[in-house]
Amino acid sequence: MTALPAWMLLHLVLAATGTWLARRYALKKQLLDQPGERRSHVVATPRGGGIAIVVSVLLGIVWLALKDPSDALLLGCFATGLILVAGIGWVDDHRPIPAWPRLLVHAVAAFLLAWGVHSSSPGLLAPVVAFVLALVLVNIWNFMDGIDGLAASQAAIVALAMVLLLDGVWAWIAAGLVAALAGFLPFNFPKARIFLGDVGSGALGFLLAGLLVAAFRSDRVSWPLLLLPISAFLVDAGFTLGMRILRREPWWMPHVQHTYQKWAGRNVSHVGVTLAYAGFSLVAAMLVLIGIGWTDYGSASICLVWFLGAGFLWARMRRDISNE
């Protein structure tokens, strides 16, 4: 563990330097997110800063795979899937791509992660969980990346919980991700000078899926608890998506109907909304760590109560915002 601080410092420096370079590149190439009715920001802002996080963590994964060949196949599948997700996002940041080709690439990346998990452990449950988590979280993190600091801070909280929960190479990957996000966040919060872009938001979802699958396979906590750190995004994205589908709206198109967006648009600063979501997720992450050793029944009960409370809170906030 003595090398862990140096490992994290290296990721932080790489990500911070890479984000600075990505911002210069975006300004030169005019890769700017313009304000509009489907955006929550009011100033044209460079995008694509998430490439720095991807490169930093990817280099760490490659180094870990070379250091321990016993994990090389799984880490290779994980790294390849990450490249696919980040790559299609990078292209989309330069030239918009239709939703379905992007989803197909995401599905291939999710399959690669599932294949790697299947090749390294018996049974079909873990690969199925890997595929579903990867496909869902890649798109949720993309949907929820709409105000300053939100997607990156939520990812940092989940990754930090995984640092404390996991061991071996996956703890190192989680620690590297936390540090890389710490290098990126000063450019994105409290006032964004660059956005993650699709290259970053989708990649964060894929990275978190890999970490959560590693925690699922470790059996250190009952699996329902692993849903808690991502519950803020699951509830907001899930209910909002459901509402748009019921209204027969094009749910895959950009919009400002998520609760966090409506809250930020109600003369509440992006900082306040991001910190409120962070507080919610920090409590959820602490519950996961406290829940080590809980029975499946107890964990499922806590998870049910938590999600019912989160759903009630989401509905209450939607009502209050609509009434103003």
Rank of each mutant, 00 (worst) to 15 (best):
T2S: 15
T2W: 07
L9I: 06
V13L: 14
A15P: 03
L21T: 03
R23W: 04
R24F: 14
L27R: 15
K28I: 00
K29M: 14
Q30M: 07
P35E: 03
R47F: 00
G48P: 07
G49I: 00
G50L: 00
I51S: 12
V57Y: 03
L58Y: 01
I61Y: 06
V62I: 09
A65T: 05
L66G: 08
K67L: 04
S70P: 00
L75K: 04
F78M: 14
L82S: 13
L84S: 11
A86P: 02
I88G: 07
D92I: 12
D93E: 13
D93F: 14
R95K: 15
V105D: 02
A107K: 05
A110E: 01
F111N: 01
L112F: 11
W115P: 01
W115F: 13
V117S: 07
L124H: 05
A130Y: 02
A130M: 00
L133E: 01
A134N: 03
V136T: 13
L137C: 05
W141A: 03
D148C: 07
G149A: 11
S153M: 15
S153G: 15
V158P: 05
M162N: 11
L166G: 06
G168R: 06
A171D: 01
W172S: 13
A174Q: 05
A180D: 11
A182V: 10
L196G: 02
L196E: 00
D198G: 10
S201Q: 06
G202S: 09
L208P: 04
G210N: 12
V213F: 01
V221H: 13
V221K: 14
S222D: 07
P224A: 11
L234K: 13
A237T: 06
T240Q: 06
G242N: 03
G242W: 08
G242M: 06
G242H: 02
M243P: 00
R244K: 12
I245H: 10
L246E: 03
R247C: 02
R248N: 09
P250R: 13
P254K: 12
P254H: 09
H255N: 09
V256A: 15
G265R: 15
G265N: 12
S269G: 04
H270W: 01
L275Q: 05
A276K: 04
G279F: 08
F280H: 13
S281Q: 14
S281I: 05
S281W: 10
L282Y: 08
L289K: 05
L289I: 01
L289F: 06
I292W: 08
W294F: 13
T295H: 08
G298M: 10
G298N: 13
I302C: 12
C303V: 04
L304I: 07
A310M: 14
G311R: 01
L313Y: 14
R316E: 09
M317P: 00
R318G: 01
I321Q: 08
E324H: 13
